[in-house]
């Protein structure tokens, strides 16, 4: 096992890296409480360290049924653009609108 058992609060740098990865902009006022909370849960989850798992292979979900999971590789109708755009918060007739990502 690694050293990843922080029963102590997540430090501000760690939390900043995490909120960036998760794309969640957190108000400064909430950071301390959240860091403490996550530390508490992670400390509790670290109880799993006491379970012996030597030689056990990880499980996503058991009993995969690959033969029934396959379907013919055939082209089928897909969503029309107009309908795909219906729930977009900002759009024009051609696509989704986003802030400029390349400079002029």
């Amino acid at each position: 096992m690694s050293d990843a058992s922080p029963a102590t609060p997540l430090d501000p740098e760690g939390l900043a890296a995490l909120t960036n990865l998760a794309r969640l902009e957190l108000p400064d006022a909430e950071r301390a409480a959240l860091g403490e909370h996550l530390g508490r849960i992670l400390g509790w989850v670290a109880e799993l360290d006491s379970v012996e798992t030597e030689g056990v292979s990880p499980s996503q979900h058991d009993a995969p049924r690959t033969t029934e999971s396959l379907r013919p590789d055939a082209v089928r109708p897909s969503l029309e653009r107009e309908r795909a755009l219906l729930n977009a918060p900002a759009r024009d007739p051609l696509g989704f609108l986003v802030p400029r990502v390349v400079s002029e």
């Binding site: 096992m1 798992t53 056990v56 292979s57 499980s59 996503q60």
Partner: peptide, 8 residues
């Protein structure tokens, strides 16, 4: 680790 415990 959790995936291994899950199998167990």
């Amino acid at each position: 680790k959790a995936q291994k415990v899950r199998r167990q």
